[in-house]
Design a protein around this nucleic acid. Structure first.
Length: 874
RNA sequence: GCCGGGAUGGCGAAACAGGAAGACGCGACAGACUCAAAAUCUGUUGGGCCUUCGCGCCCGUGGGGGUUCGACUCCCCCUCCCGGCACCA
């Protein structure tokens, strides 16, 4: 039966006449839920497939990015299930985090209550999308049954020295009132609220990700299933530099200064040294020198962001002290400068102005000597004429016994030389810093540590886990961690001496939760352990992980780190958690902007493109990522109310390949909706006829409907290949549309002698269509499958396999070119020999005309494809 | 600056291993149905040319060169766009 507008007749809003998608979708969702259709357990007899989508933060409602993400994941899961895999497809909630606390401050709701409410609503939204999750595995990070294992893992890491506390300059976000990890600062701004991050000295907990720096880097080479750009971003982030550490003796005989360099080959050109103003030695050298002390003090108070920006002018001060270049034995001055950073390398550098632009700029400014020690491969340079440093490779010159060596070999030779004399050694440096995980916030995992005046830092004993978050807490955005004000939480007795002690009141970064949730999904109900190793062994690694690119160096790096830590703790036996990664593009939409009223909603712009508030023409802005602030969001609830989940899914899969940005188009949604309605009308219209008896008939014996039968087989091939090859959902759906177009052209016929045969072909084609459509639009496929008389779910149907014989064409279109230009087409038997193709092409009258007055020089024949006739004088 | 990814009709996009550029969808135009509209169905739709309207000719995948019988596809150079990193020694 057909409904108007999908709901009640009369409520039409310029919408297509439609099938009752609401009834269909709700009905099948109920059936799937009742049957627990997508529950899985380990089964060694089936190949396993772990399909994971990044679980959401329960912010209140799902957005279109979620719709796209979860639609992609669901197609993958349903496809592999139909291909005979035992598919783990779980869902959970990344439910610790700041927005819950902000809600508490703004609306007076407890973060726990706010979170639970959001989860409840978002769960119904996800269920409305018809996603095939095993809901029995649902996990919630803010649940003590989950976060107790964060604490347990933290303690294991503490035991191994992988979790430690140190005072450090940390990134502080004034808006969030908490510390941020380096990965959470983007261009000096908070990843969450875009406010400027300042530096603060605080005593903080760190996780030693640097211990795995090299492994995290080299592991990337063994991830062919990851996008290149994500691997590049991680490589950049880890920032490995291979070089050497060199000791420069002090001219006054004091302890030497160690520097790090990647250009040992330029050592003979080091004409001065520079220390970071915070360097321990800098303080000593500054003593009694007011201008140096002043410089240090000024650097200390200056904004670090400004100081470390590339555009900031280099400035420095001479300390009055000298060191000795260990190769030339020359006395060289020691300076302090703003551009040398304590955190990188040893906090001290040798300066080679001739071959390092920064040193060059500095030398020019302060009139320090410039000595050339590398000549380019071609030509020579003159130090006095240099206008900028020569940073390239070349041949060593003015370098004593090393002169004449190519710079690459020179680096090795110098390193060997330094090591032999014990004044230096080969060294590697990383840009990656340890992960600061302390957060001065309430809604997170309490760090399970107790401070005792007598015993010092004492880990909470395992039997006392979980350290529960107290419910009775006053949440404000000022005055440090809210937990610090909860006395019954803070004041405890020391587990070691039972004397009075205090709890750690910082909580863990919420990225800790997501660093291992994919492992917990394997045994989500395990009560006595973080994981059940046998189950983890069965399911891990994740075969396909799907999520946004924004986690390229956050979550995806932390998860790789945690997996390795857990491997070294003997909990898992894999190195890499995610074999294949698909980073979906953003969902974007055009924006409207009024000169007076700023961003406008589509409803706030009239048909003539003017602002409804002031009548000025709005500027149609660029296509941008959907966001509330730009007023260009589409609410998934509205979308599903108007068109249903199948249309929402189909559109987000059809409009663009998954890894590219998706540009929102209301007409595109209409198109997807029209297509599904067409399918519905077609199958519904034929259902009665197709349910009548069919007679099995071989393709060879088929007298009618051969083209449709072939088209169905072609479609199987195309859709299967598109899904197997990088999940090209858009072209797979296009192939389904072509099949529907063919079905639409097909006449079931009236002559009784052909009717049965035509019915057989039509039934095959329709069933093929429904089965192939099932991963994309599962509700409609189920509904129509049932109308054709099936009692089992289409989700249990086997994915079809095309027949190469059927696809084999008897006749083939061969293109004929003359000098590479298309001149004729020939229909020839598919098995025509090369010689026959050549002869037929040369004989063709249209080709003949083009050959007039020319000599055939060559004939290129590509069997089953084309003939290209090459002539003289073209 | 370094690294990664891009650029194809009016629009979103196809073209998998070098072999008919533009599948499929949107939009537009025309027709059928209708009193009419909507919906639906059918056709046309890269640009240009024409006393020949054709199975026609020329041009066409950011620009310039090259390899090849043949290039969206491979190579070199350049422009622009998106993303990451960046005083990291």
């Amino acid at each position: 039966m057909l409904f108007i507008g999908g709901t009640i007749a009369g409520e039409r809003i310029g919408m297509a006449r439609s099938y009752d998608f609401k009834g269909v979708e709700a009905g099948w969702q109920r059936v799937w839920e009742e049957r627990k259709a997508f529950r899985v357990t380990e089964d060694a007899s089936q190949p396993k497939y772990y399909c994971l989508v990044m679980y959401p933060y329960p912010s209140g409602k799902i957005h279109m990015g979620h719709v796209r993400n979860y639609a992609i994941g669901d197609v993958v899961a349903r496809y592999f299930r139909m291909r005979g895999h035992n598919v783990l497809h779980p869902m959970g909630w990344d439910s610790f985090g700041l927005p819950a606390e902000n809600a508490a401050i703004e609306h007076g709701v407890h973060p726990a209550a706010w979170t639970v409410e959001n989860i409840t609503y978002m769960r119904t939204q996800l269920k409305r999308m018809g996603l095939s999750y095993d809901w029995d595995r649902e996990i919630t990070c803010s649940d003590p049954e989950y976060y107790r294992w964060n604490q347990w893992l933290f303690l294991r890491m503490y035991e191994k020295g992988l979790a430690y506390k140190k005072p450090a300059l940390v990134n502080w976000c004034e808006v969030c009132q908490t510390v941020l990890a380096n990965e959470q600062v983007e261009g000096g701004r908070c990843w969450r609220d875009d406010s400027v991050v300042i530096q603060k000295e605080l005593d903080q907990w760190f996780l030693k990700i640097t211990a795995y720096a090299d492994e995290l880097l080299t592991g990337l080479d063994r991830l062919p299933g990851w996008p290149e750009r994500v691997k590049t971003m991680q490589r950049n982030w880890i920032g490995k530099s291979v070089g050497a550490e060199v000791d420069f003796p002090m001219a006054d005989g004091g302890p030497p200064i160690t520097i790090f360099t990647t250009r040992q080959d330029t050592l003979y050109g080091a004409t001065f040294m520079v220390l970071a103003p915070e360097h321990a030695l800098a303080h000593r050298l500054a003593r009694g020198r007011p201008e140096v002390e002043g410089f240090i003090e000024r650097m200390r108070t200056e904004d670090r962001l400004v100081r470390t920006a590339a555009e900031t002018e280099k400035e420095g001060v001479f300390t009055g002290a000298f060191a000795i270049n260990p190769l030339t034995q020359e006395k060289i001055p020691i300076w302090l400068a703003n551009f040398v950073l304590l955190e990188y390398g040893t906090g001290a550098i040798m300066s080679v102005p001739s071959h390092d632009q920064r040193d060059f700029d500095f030398a020019r400014k302060y009139h320090l000597p410039i000595r050339l020690v590398i000549d380019p491969e071609e030509g020579t340079l003159v130090a006095a004429d240099l206008e900028k440093a020569y940073e390239g490779e070349g041949v060593m010159v003015n370098s004593g016994p090393f002169s004449g060596l190519p710079s690459g070999e020179g680096r090795e030779a110098i390193t060997r030389y330094l090591e032999e004399r014990r004044i230096g050694k080969g060294a590697v440096n990383y840009r990656l810093r340890d992960w600061g995980v302390s957060r001065q916030r309430y809604w997170g995992t309490p760090i399970p540590i107790i401070y005792c005046d007598r015993c010092g830092t004492v880990p909470v004993p395992e039997r006392d886990l979980p350290v529960l978050l107290p419910r009775d807490v006053e949440i404000t955005m000022k005055g440090g961690s809210p937990l610090a004000r909860v006395e019954h939480f803070v004041n405890v007795s020391c587990p070691a001496c039972h004397g009075p002690a205090r709890r750690e009141t910082d909580t863990m970064d919420t990225f800790v939760d997501s660093s291992w949730y994919f492992l917990r999904f394997c045994s989500p109900k395990e009560e006595n352990r973080a994981l059940d190793p046998a189950k983890v062994m069965y399911w891990m690694p994740v075969d396909q992980y799907i999520g946004g690119i924004e986690h390229a160096v956050l979550h995806l790096l932390y998860a790789r780190f945690f997996t390795r830590v857990m491997r070294d703790l003997g909990l898992v036996s894999i190195d890499e958690p995610f074999v294949n990664l698909l980073t979906q593009g953003m969902v974007c939409k055009e924006t409207y902007r009024c000169p007076t009223h700023g961003y406008r909603l589509p409803d706030e712009v009239d048909a003539k493109g003017r602002c409804t508030a002031c009548g000025q023409p709005v500027e149609i802005g660029r296509i941008e990522k959907m966001s509330k602030s730009k007023k260009n969001v589409v609410d998934p609830d509205d979308l599903m109310n108007r068109y249903g989940a199948d249309t929402a899914r189909l559109f987000s899969l059809f409009a663009a390949p998954p890894e590219k940005d998706l540009e929102w188009s209301d007409q595109g949604v209409e198109g997807a909706f029209r297509f599904l309605n067409r399918v519905y009308r077609l199958v519904e219209g034929w259902a009665e006829e197709l349910c009548r008896p069919v007679k099995p008939v071989s393709f060879a014996a088929l007298t009618v409907g051969r083209a449709l039968y072939q088209k169905a087989h072609f479609t199987i091939k195309k859709v299967t290949e598109d899904l197997d090859r990088d999940f090209h959902f858009n072209t797979a759906i296009a192939a389904l549309m072509e099949l529907v177009n063919s079905l639409g052209q097909f006449d079931l016929g009236s002559a009784p002698e052909e009717r049965e045969e035509k019915r057989t072909v039509a039934r095959f084609a329709v069933e093929t269509l429904l089965v192939l459509l099932a991963p994309f639009a599962p509700h409609l496929a189920e509904e129509l499958w049932q109308r054709l008389g099936h009692s089992r779910s289409i989700a249990e149907a086997r994915w079809p396999v095309h027949s190469t014989e059927v696809i084999q064409q008897e006749e083939i279109l061969v293109v004929v070119q003359v000098n590479g230009k298309l001149r004729s087409r020939l229909v020839l038997p598919a098995d025509a020999e090369e010689e026959a193709l050549r002869a037929a092409a040369l004989k063709d009258s249209r080709v003949q005309a083009w050959l007039e007055g020319r000599q055939v020089v060559r004939v290129v024949v590509v069997p089953k494809k084309l003939v290209n006739i090459v002539t003289d004088e073209r």
